[in-house]
């Protein structure tokens, strides 16, 4: 569903992403690990088409993200690390607004259902977003993705700043989505969560995808060792 081929992105003299080949199939949750500055966020931005690659291609469901931006974005949903919504609108209104940008507007009830499906407490649906926690805001983000019925979801550090319980709940939501056949790409620092939630894990360093695993193939300790080894190499 999500596919990058020989992706290269340079910022002046540094190569942020170097000949990256990465594919996320429908129903997969791909967790991208790596230290700060490894090129994770750049990769996400390239997938979203926010940045123009120097070479290589990114495709969503076979559609080139850069050549056909709007079409690609119809299939894609994105939840940034700091998901900001309009503070003076309610969660429901935010969902209504963002979902209406992409597709035909849906009924009020349908949107409420989506928010519930995304795990937002019923009492919060019609409250202003300015009072929401990060977890609640992300649930609205998930609901936006659900409303668009997107085939792929890209998340940038979704669990940073969430308490363990919220983090757990969030992971369950993602798993639910992947079961419906959504391809999910998320970046994270959280090795534990990556192994628990992800179906595949990639470790990135200095713009290069160094290692890839199937989550079920590695134990937590092994993953940690590999990761720390990679870190040591970078020093």
């Amino acid at each position: 569903m999500l596919k990058a081929e020989q992706l290269v992105k340079r910022f002046e003299d540094t190569v942020a992403v170097n000949r990256l080949d990465l594919e996320v199939k429908a129903g997969e949750i791909y967790c991208l690990l790596g230290p700060n500055g490894a090129g994770k966020t750049t990769t996400v931005h390239l997938f979203m088409g926010f940045l123009k690659p120097d070479s290589g291609t990114v495709k969503v469901g076979g559609i080139d993200v850069f050549e056909n931006q709007l079409e690609a974005r119809r299939r894609l949903s994105y939840i940034p690390e700091q998901l900001a919504l309009y503070p003076n609108l309610t969660g429901h209104e935010n969902l209504e607004f963002f979902s209406s940008l992409g597709s035909d507007p849906q009924g009020k009830k349908a949107l409420e259902l989506l928010l519930k499906e995304a795990g937002l407490q019923e009492s919060a649906i019609h409250r202003k977003v300015s009072g929401y926690s990060k977890g609640m805001r992300q649930k609205v983000g998930i609901a936006i993705a659900l409303a668009k019925n997107s085939k792929a979801l890209i998340l940038d550090e979704p669990t940073s700043g969430l308490d363990p319980e919220a983090s757990n709940e969030f992971a369950r939501l993602l798993t639910g989505l992947s079961k419906k056949g959504v391809a999910i790409l998320m970046t994270t620092h959280d090795l534990f969560r990556a192994r628990e939630t992800g179906t595949r894990i990639g470790i990135m360093r200095e713009g290069v995808l160094k290692r890839e695993f199937k989550a079920e193939d590695v134990k937590h300790e092994e993953l940690e060792n590999v990761y720390l080894n990679q870190m040591r190499l970078s020093e």
């Binding site: 709007l70 974005r73 894609l76 994105y78 940034p80 900001a84 963002f98 940008l101």
Partner: peptide, 18 residues
């Protein structure tokens, strides 16, 4: 500045149109 820009940007409508 509010941060809603990236979410807007990820929607299938161009920022210019908005």
């Amino acid at each position: 500045e509010r941060g809603t820009y990236s979410l807007l940007q990820s929607q299938p409508i161009s920022i210019r149109a908005i």
